Computed example of a mutant assay.
Amino acid sequence: MDRAKKEQVVAQLHDKLKRASAAILTDFKGMTVAEMVDLRDALAAEKVEYQVVKNTLMRLAAKETSATVLEPLLRDTCAVAIGYDDPSIPAKVLKKFSKSNDKLKIKGGALGARLLDLNQVSALAELPSREELLAKLLGTLNAVPTGLVTVLSGLPRALVTALAAIQEKKEAA
């Protein structure tokens, strides 16, 4: 690869890493081309980019981005999965794929300016999606006023029931 091509790759990767919500490094050693295509297709379906990178080019591209924390993990063969929206999506897809293909190894990731180890990436993969979390929050926020209305409507209902019982008692007497 000539110098101009390398500079172009670094510039493109730098732009992607600046826009990324999460970047996860993997080791793909031993995977066949068909397996890599399957992985790329699974990631692309979730709008996650997957790119094999040279470690030196990744170091240069990561400068002045939150992905600089990945530098200690840049050894051996590396590929990076870059997610732009929900940071848990790349982790979920990679974890699911690594269960069916033991050749794919997750090295770690970057969430914002924080370095994630393998266990933290797995924990990120277990999180519900952003939409699910927002739905749960909305349900919780909606439950408070609903409960208050139920409690407040119970007081007049109890009063009416008591008055009706008193009226029936007086009519019987």
Score class of each variant (00 low, 15 high):
2 D>E: 08
2 D>G: 13
4 A>K: 10
8 Q>G: 00
8 Q>E: 11
13 L>D: 03
15 D>A: 00
15 D>G: 04
16 K>D: 09
16 K>F: 02
17 L>T: 05
17 L>D: 00
18 K>Q: 08
20 A>F: 03
24 I>G: 02
27 D>I: 03
28 F>Y: 15
29 K>H: 08
33 V>Q: 01
36 M>S: 09
36 M>P: 13
38 D>H: 01
39 L>I: 02
39 L>W: 01
39 L>T: 05
40 R>L: 05
42 A>H: 08
42 A>M: 07
43 L>N: 04
46 E>S: 11
51 Q>Y: 03
55 N>V: 12
56 T>Y: 11
57 L>S: 12
57 L>T: 09
58 M>G: 04
60 L>H: 08
62 A>H: 08
62 A>I: 10
63 K>E: 15
64 E>S: 15
65 T>N: 11
66 S>N: 12
66 S>K: 14
67 A>E: 04
68 T>N: 14
70 L>Q: 00
71 E>V: 13
72 P>C: 14
72 P>E: 14
72 P>Y: 05
73 L>G: 06
74 L>N: 03
74 L>K: 07
74 L>M: 15
75 R>V: 12
78 C>M: 11
79 A>F: 06
81 A>E: 09
84 Y>N: 14
84 Y>V: 15
84 Y>S: 15
84 Y>P: 11
85 D>K: 06
86 D>W: 01
87 P>N: 02
88 S>A: 12
88 S>P: 11
89 I>Q: 02
90 P>H: 05
90 P>A: 04
90 P>S: 00
91 A>K: 06
93 V>T: 12
95 K>F: 12
96 K>Q: 10
96 K>V: 12
97 F>N: 03
99 K>G: 06
100 S>K: 14
101 N>K: 04
103 K>W: 05
104 L>Q: 05
105 K>N: 06
105 K>V: 13
106 I>W: 04
107 K>C: 06
108 G>I: 10
110 A>G: 05
112 G>S: 09
112 G>D: 10
113 A>M: 02
113 A>K: 05
114 R>N: 10
115 L>F: 03
117 D>N: 15
119 N>V: 12
119 N>I: 10
119 N>R: 11
119 N>K: 10
120 Q>Y: 01
121 V>M: 06
123 A>T: 06
125 A>K: 07
125 A>R: 09
126 E>C: 02
126 E>S: 06
130 R>K: 14
130 R>Q: 13
133 L>M: 13
133 L>I: 14
133 L>Y: 04
133 L>R: 04
134 L>P: 12
135 A>W: 01
136 K>N: 09
139 G>V: 13
140 T>G: 14
141 L>W: 13
141 L>M: 15
142 N>P: 00
144 V>K: 13
150 T>G: 02
150 T>D: 04
153 S>K: 07
154 G>W: 12
155 L>T: 15
156 P>A: 15
158 A>M: 10
164 A>K: 14
165 A>R: 11
166 I>C: 14
167 Q>R: 14
167 Q>C: 09
167 Q>V: 06
168 E>N: 09
168 E>M: 04
171 E>W: 13
172 A>M: 08
172 A>D: 15
173 A>W: 02
173 A>R: 08
